[in-house]
């Protein structure tokens, strides 16, 4: 029998194995870097049908509205609701009542059809998240959503992965604040001149007091979020 395979094919198995190993490494790294919530979600900033500007409405340089003016059910319900059109029109029926940017809002009120907002933050179907449980226990909006009051268009600021949630659930003292400051997104635990390290330490101490006083015991087991 003549040689079917040349001598160089002796190296084929090793090359294939090394190649597979290399491929696996690359794929794993690629997925870990590119396909995890930290990369996929952070920075997602879709265009909305109405260019609602949070920095004007809620920011301290603008109107300075409290979050609950529109997201009024956040303390009662699992959803912090996107407000119905009638909430927008409570002001915009008189203010900028002819602005072309607000045309979808006026149309929605007239037709009864909802404004089709693009959803920025979404947890998977098997996760149950309840806003009121957090907001009523000292977790501010900024901990998970970032400085929304400085965003012109809402973007996904944090990764919202399970690790992100567990980070806080395991160390609640680093993320809770007194109830009266929950909706004050710019609040700092120490005075404004403190360094970030000092802020962190101040937060930890204040948080520890609150966790102790309020008996904050975030669920760390599956049923806390996965029902």
């Amino acid at each position: 029998m003549a040689n079917i395979f040349s001598r160089s094919s002796n190296w084929a198995p090793i090359k294939i194995i090394i190649g597979i190993f290399f491929l696996a490494t690359v794929v794993t790294s690629a997925v870990t870097y590119y396909a995890t919530p930290k990369y996929l979600r952070v920075g997602y900033q879709p265009q909305q049908p109405v260019p609602f500007d949070h920095s004007w409405h809620a920011g301290k340089d603008g109107l300075g509205l409290d979050c609950r003016f529109c997201h009024n059910n956040v303390t009662k319900s699992e959803h912090s609701n996107v407000p119905p059109t009638s909430t927008c029109m409570s002001c915009h029926s008189v203010i900028k009542s002819n602005s072309p940017k607000l045309a979808p809002v006026r149309e929605s009120l007239q037709s009864g059809e909802p404004i089709e907002w693009v959803k920025v933050h979404k947890t998977p179907d098997y996760v149950y998240f309840n806003h009121s449980a957090h907001v009523n226990r000292g977790v501010s909006c900024v901990e998970c959503h970032g400085r929304v009051d400085e965003m012109q268009t809402v973007r996904h600021d944090k990764s919202h992965s399970m690790a992100f949630c567990l980070d806080c659930h395991r160390n609640p003292q680093d993320h809770v604040r007194p109830i009266e400051h929950v909706f004050d997104l710019g609040w700092q635990p120490a005075s404004g001149s403190a360094t970030p390290k000092e802020q962190k330490q101040a937060q930890r101490e204040l948080g520890a007091e609150l966790v102790a006083d309020w008996k904050i015991q975030p669920p760390k087991s599956c049923f806390g979020c996965h029902r």
């Binding site: 609701n81 119905p84 059109t85 693009v118």
Partner: peptide, 17 residues
């Protein structure tokens, strides 16, 4: 994905409650 809030929300209905 989209969010569809009410245009005029009925009384006593709180989504999620």
């Amino acid at each position: 994905r989209r969010i569809y809030p009410y245009s005029k929300q009925p009384e006593y209905i709180i989504p999620g409650v």
